[in-house]
Design a protein around this nucleic acid. Structure first.
Lengths: 335, 335
DNA sequence: GAAACTGATGTAAAGCTTTACATTTAAAAT
DNA sequence: ATTTTAAATGTAAAGCTTTACATCAGTTTC
């Protein structure tokens, strides 16, 4: 029933300890500049009345929020949540707070989240959603790092995988395993990752001079399009011996659908995915795929952002996190 | 090169519009109390100099952060990230910001995150990690809602699934399908959800008077323990015809391991899981399981928290989100 | 013993917004 | 024409911390 008896302020501590506000503040922020005796008195006073500095007042005075904004397109997607986990890891080390927003790929929502950069709630931003409305103007001095998906027109730093190279490696792996008639199931047309992975596929098959035997099927990263691609392949492209899927979900959808139609992977068709999401290794047959180290991606991006927030001058960089081909059970050598 | 020429304040707007600070503030917060003409002038002034209210100053003055703290044990786990997604959904509707923290089940980390409740950065908290250090004291007036895992000693509101009942239903379903020799693979011993699900299993088999034929195997929610349970079952418990796994990961681990040993699910053994994680339906055979509506769980918890933050007086409630048995391909009727 | 220095602490302003209260102006009521 | 009421706006304080600058008391130096 009793109204909370007012939260203690720094003045309450000062009064109790018999010193000035300034000294209390110093004990809390710069202990080394105050004498050991005073330090002790103040520390005890703080403890005894349970004082906690008011963050709002600190933010106002310091003009710094110690907070970073993270915008992602889909929180419920492990792909992003693992990156987020890496981000959080660095943030907690650096004593930063992370503010999170789901953009749902909606640019209005995205814009409203970015407001936090201007209203002082966040000192910088991490963008996982491949979009930044009006990327060209407006974001001059703001520390922003994009992750995974590059953003067209955005000149800041980026952390991600070299998708084209990785896709080339994936395709080359199929070629090395003896395959000459290969299909690619792509991601959504307008997605930059799709484009990069498709480009890698194209380069690899051109280089091997087998482009004429190879095809590309439109997908959208959902497992259902992997399934429909399976139907398509069975009906129209019986000659294909291997498939490079632009992500693991589609690979699994493909394999499941094939299995239901009595086509065994890898015996009758080889499949390679991309991402190495959690279930790629749990799925049976376990999916051969390109592993992206998402946790590390998050860590790296966050470190970069922190240094951008603290060091005024920081020239934008592009960082590629090493990827790795995980050989599992969906690719078979043929002769 | 040019140092940013000072962020505009409300006074700058006021000066430009030829009104007082108060009026500008009113236009921004309570447009209806100011005349249409002034409103227009001010709005234009705001736009023309690109003014954004300083959040820190607002927080300080209003003594409200419009921010909610969310603590979860593992960001990278879809189970939690889907709940998070529901939370975010309500937060964005209510124009609240969400502050996120990974506790890693570390109580020190958890405590340091909870500081945000005291330093004014967050108005309330959502706890997904089943722990609240010193739950009894200290959290008197603070709006806190626990989700999914109940917290012993914590008297606040909770949103989750009635795990015991759901586990009973899952077990009863196996019984209804003719099974009489049933195994349960449990979660980690010290986890409250494990305990509740195990209790449900026990009740169901007791009620059906088949407890003597049934066994319980220790697991830890990881798919690997599902696999080792499979080995155990094959070696020592050939009589078992159905298994209730305390979560889907273990169910998949179990099924995969069985498949590798030539034991077909559901033909030779029926399996039911719990949670209905994303891959439960993509996995082959698709996993029969109990669906928890995690998105809705997050939504409900957040709504509850919001009402707790705004309405001073709110008595704690316990809310169960309806669950649903998803019949898929891992359970078969026997005679 | 005076001057210069060092270390510890205090004083007070600044940071920006909101809001209770006061004031002004115009319209309505008498 | 005077008084009342209502609507619109202004004034100024409060919210809490940090920090530049000032002060004070010892030490050191010559």
């Amino acid at each position: 029933m009793s109204k909370n008896p007012k939260r203690p302020t720094i003045s309450d501590v000062a009064k109790l300890a018999g010193v000035s506000n300034a000294t209390v503040s110093r004990v809390l922020q710069n202990p080394e500049v105050v004498s050991a005796a005073t330090r002790k008195t103040v520390t005890e006073a703080v403890k005894s009345i349970g004082y906690r500095a008011n963050t709002a007042a600190q933010m106002l005075r310091r003009n710094r929020a110690n907070t970073v904004l993270v915008i992602l397109p889909d929180l419920a997607n492990t792909f992003f949540s693992e990156i987020l986990s890496g981000i959080e890891n660095v943030a907690s080390e650096a004593n930063l707070t992370i503010l999170i927003g789901n953009s749902n790929n909606d640019s209005a929502r995205c814009l409203s989240l970015l407001e936090n950069l201007w209203n002082g709630r966040a000192d910088g931003a991490l963008l996982l959603n491949g979009a930044l409305p009006d990327a060209e103007d407006r974001y001059e001095g703001k520390p922003i790092v994009s992750i995974s998906e590059t953003i067209s027109g955005f000149l800041g730093s980026h952390v991600g995988t070299n998708n084209e190279l990785a896709a080339m490696d994936a395709t080359q792996f199929l070629i090395d395993m003896g395959h000459r008639k290969i299909a690619h199931i792509s991601g959504p047309k307008d997605n930059i990752l799709s484009a990069q992975r498709m480009a890698g596929f194209d380069k690899a098959v051109s280089r091997a001079d087998i482009a004429a035997n190879c095809i590309s099927i439109d997908g959208d990263f959902a497992s259902s399009t992997g399934a429909s691609a399976a139907t398509n392949l069975m009906k129209n492209h019986a000659e294909i011996t291997a498939v490079f899927c632009a992500n693991d979900e589609m690979a699994m959808g493909l394999v499941s659908e094939l299995a239901e139609n009595g086509i065994g992977v890898p015996d009758q068709l080889s499949v390679i995915g991309f991402d190495d999401i959690n279930f790629a290794s749990i799925y049976r047959p376990s999916i051969t795929t390109i592993r992206q180290d998402r946790f590390e991606m998050g860590r790296k991006a966050m470190s970069l952002l922190v240094s951008q927030i603290t060091n005024e001058a920081a020239t934008p960089v592009e960082v590629y996190i090493p990827y790795k081909l995980m050989e599992r059970d969906t690719v078979k050598r043929i002769t």
